[in-house]
Design a protein around this nucleic acid. Structure first.
Length: 634
RNA sequence: GCCGGAGUAGCUCAGUGGUAGAGCAGCGGUUUUGUAAGCCGCGUGUCGCGGGUUCGACUCCCGCCUCCGGCUCCA
């Protein structure tokens, strides 16, 4: 047989040769260092036979930052962890232990709960294993033999995994520990130079909260101690951009235990909020939306009609009254907008009708799910509902996608798009979902938007196009969403009178681009690391009088710049100039003007965020400011 | 909600049974400042909340709340 090497030469090998045999044919050093074989973008264990005629590339212990090479290293480290835990905690049951982004984990069922202190002990045991050295043996056996083996070892989770496994069953053994595992793995533990166990957490077996909760140990591993140190340093660095930390430092918002999950917006944070709100209003107006306001609290009957009582009640704040009535604070605007639409007879001439509302919503999120601004109970969506005919769906979806591109483009955000399809608890028939999902897919295709499919991730009333962004801690959050809904208008009996003098069903597109102001601002804080673009910055210009006798001139300057609609403040504290300049920098204010004996309206000492200094006239500065704001197309 | 960790001054944190501490911030004074921290002085506190053990609890025990890292769930 033949394989093709990266320099396009062909390598002749005996039939059925493995990657390891190919490596030996090239050189003993390569055979020793090979950790993986990559072929056509896929990686496989060096112990497995190669495919005839395919290009191959070896990943070695020197490819220390290749994601695949790191992944196999970490996967093997996970097995070392399991070996160590089995030795230290007799009676422990092992579940699964895959590599993940930036590390690995392994799930166990411990006979007695363990604590974070135990990690140190386990880590020491892993280090001991590494010192002794481990090598991995691979074998393939039948499912029946594997089941028998894990029954004998009293490993019920492995038995269950064998039962649902597809394809041939492979086992990897090192240091007397045999694991059911698809691989690939290292040949030897020597390249594992640094292993660190990072945290302990509960995790449900197979990700289902009805199952037993296992104990998950997270860790990471690298080909060198220096790489591990650099990784830990990056994590520390990321923390400095965390919106929760910057929110306090920049005086944007805070949280208080008297209302968990609901931010208190400080004046500076509110400036950002309101600036986004103005943007939303302006663009909605340009694109034919009508702003409305609907009630915050509704009687139970409304939620029954909308389906929320059945599908969403656990997330709603309920208000039982003495008279036996039950109310709930709205978690979404849609039912209110349904009532608004239904409050009059609608003609085909009225459609499409686009209602926009950024009302505060409340969702009773699980306490453990709350997270800064990105997961709150007080949610303000930049919400809108487009009521349209079946024929108008495509063009309305086009409008929402053009709008979507505009919004994300303003911030230079590049979210990932997800098509979220019918969930288990859906309303309506499969035929209806075929239609609504199909309409979203076609819209994505028309706009050449790449997306991945989230099976069963749709809302109970319709499929969605969701936009996701990751935060500094690599957590993914859903921001915008575009949802096509045939269910809710039907449940509210919404129709319009067609040109044919007959009633026709109405469709609704639910859409939001920020998703929620709260989450969006959280993501923006991290995206800009607190250094907001001029148009969004809470304070755009800080004025610093050099000495007391310059205050009057500075106040006049302030009045003049504010008259042009810019946000200015003055730092006239009796602190040294150096200190006040430093604080303006720490507060990430885009422009600072120092004003002393040498300055006049014709010659201002301008300092930009980052330290660049220049001299500009007041008029020139205002021209620059107007140009900055023009970037968002006012 | 579940697993693990934490809660001490406005912020970041030290303090492990015997009278609560540091840096920054703040306040008072001094300096009148030229582009990232001038100098001197002052501790500002129900040690998250409630109960218990003890002669004595920030410290030990129990319950609760909140936050942090995960799981589950979601904008």
């Amino acid at each position: 047989m033949k394989v093709i090497l990266p320099d396009s030469t062909e390598l002749e090998l005996p039939d059925g040769a493995t990657g390891l045999e190919a490596a030996r044919a090239i050189g003993p050093k390569l055979a020793e260092q090979a950790v993986l074989v990559r072929s056509n973008g896929r990686v496989q264990d060096v112990r497995l036979p190669l495919a005839e005629g395919q290009p191959i590339q070896f990943l070695t212990t020197r490819d220390t930052s290749d994601p695949d090479a790191l992944s196999v290293l970490r996967h093997s480290a996970a097995h070392l962890l399991a070996e160590a835990v089995r030795r230290l905690y007799p009676g422990v049951k092992v579940a699964i232990g895959p590599p993940i982004e930036n590390g690995f984990y392994y799930d166990f069922q411990f006979p007695e709960p363990i604590r974070e202190d135990d990690l140190e002990r386990i880590e020491a045991e892993i280090d001991r294993e590494l010192e002794e050295g481990r090598s991995w043996e691979r074998e393939e056996i039948s499912a029946a033999a594997a089941k028998q083996r894990f029954l004998e070892e009293n490993e019920p989770y492995k038995v269950e995994l064998v039962a649902t496994a597809e394809g041939p069953i492979s086992l990897y053994t090192q240091g007397g520990f045999t694991d059911l595992c698809r691989g690939p793995h290292l040949q030897d533990s020597a390249p594992i130079k640094a292993v660190k166990l990072t945290s302990l957490a509960g995790a449900y077996w197979r990700g289902d909260e009805r199952n037993t909760q296992l104990t998950r140990i997270y860790g990471t591993a690298f080909y060198s101690q220096a790489d591990l140190d650099a990784h830990l340093e990056r994590l520390e660095q990321a923390k400095t951009r965390d919106h929760r930390r910057l929110g306090l430092q920049l005086d944007l918002f805070h949280f208080d235990e008297h209302s968990p999950g609901s931010p208190f917006w400080h004046p500076k944070g509110m400036t950002i909020f309101n600036t986004l709100e103005e943007l939303r209003r302006r663009e909605n107006r340009r694109r034919g939306y009508h702003e409305v306001k609907t009630p915050l609290i509704y009687e139970k009957a409304l939620w029954v009609t909308s389906g929320h009582w059945d599908k969403f009640r656990e997330n709603m704040f309920l208000i039982p009254l003495d008279d036996g009535h039950e109310y709930a604070i709205k978690p979404m605007n849609c039912p209110g907008h349904m009532l608004l639409f239904g409050s009059a007879l609608r003609s085909y001439r009225d459609l499409p009708l686009r209602y926009a509302e950024a009302a505060p919503l409340h969702r009773d999120e699980l306490a453990g799910a709350l997270h800064g601004l990105t997961r709150v109970r007080h949610v303000t969506q930049d919400d809108a509902h487009i009521f349209c005919t079946r024929e108008q769906i495509d063009s309305e979806l086009d409008g929402t996608l053009v709008y979507l591109r505009y919004v994300y483009g303003l911030f230079g955000l590049e979210p990932r798009a997800e098509l979220s399809t019918r969930p288990d608890n859906k309303l309506g028939t499969d035929e209806e979902w075929d239609f609504t999902e199909g309409a979203l897919i076609q819209a994505l295709d028309r706009h050449e938007i790449d997306y991945f499919v989230g099976e069963g991730e749709g809302s109970f009333y319709g499929p969605k196009i969701d936009l996701h962004m990751t935060d500094v801690l690599d957590r993914s959050w859903q921001l915008g969403t575009i949802q096509l809904d045939a269910q809710m208008p039907a449940r509210f009996g919404l129709t319009y009178m067609g040109a044919d003098n007959h009633e026709h069903p109405v469709f609704v597109i639910h859409r939001a681009y920020f998703g929620s102001f709260e989450r969006f601002i959280g993501i923006l804080v991290e995206h800009y690391a607190g250094a907001f673009p001029f148009w969004l910055a809470p304070v755009q210009l800080r004025l610093i009088p050099v000495a007391e006798n310059h205050r009057e001139a500075v106040h006049a300057l302030r009045t003049r710049v504010e008259a042009d609609g810019f946000r200015v403040d003055v730092d006239e504290r009796e602190e040294t100039l150096g200190k006040r300049v430093r604080e303006a920098e720490v507060e990430k204010i885009p422009f600072t003007v120092v004003y002393g004996d040498k300055e006049s309206d014709e010659a201002l000492a301008v300092r930009e965020r980052g330290g660049e200094q220049s001299t500009r006239s007041l008029e020139a500065l205002l021209v620059d400011f107007r140009a900055e704001v023009a970037t968002i197309g006012t």
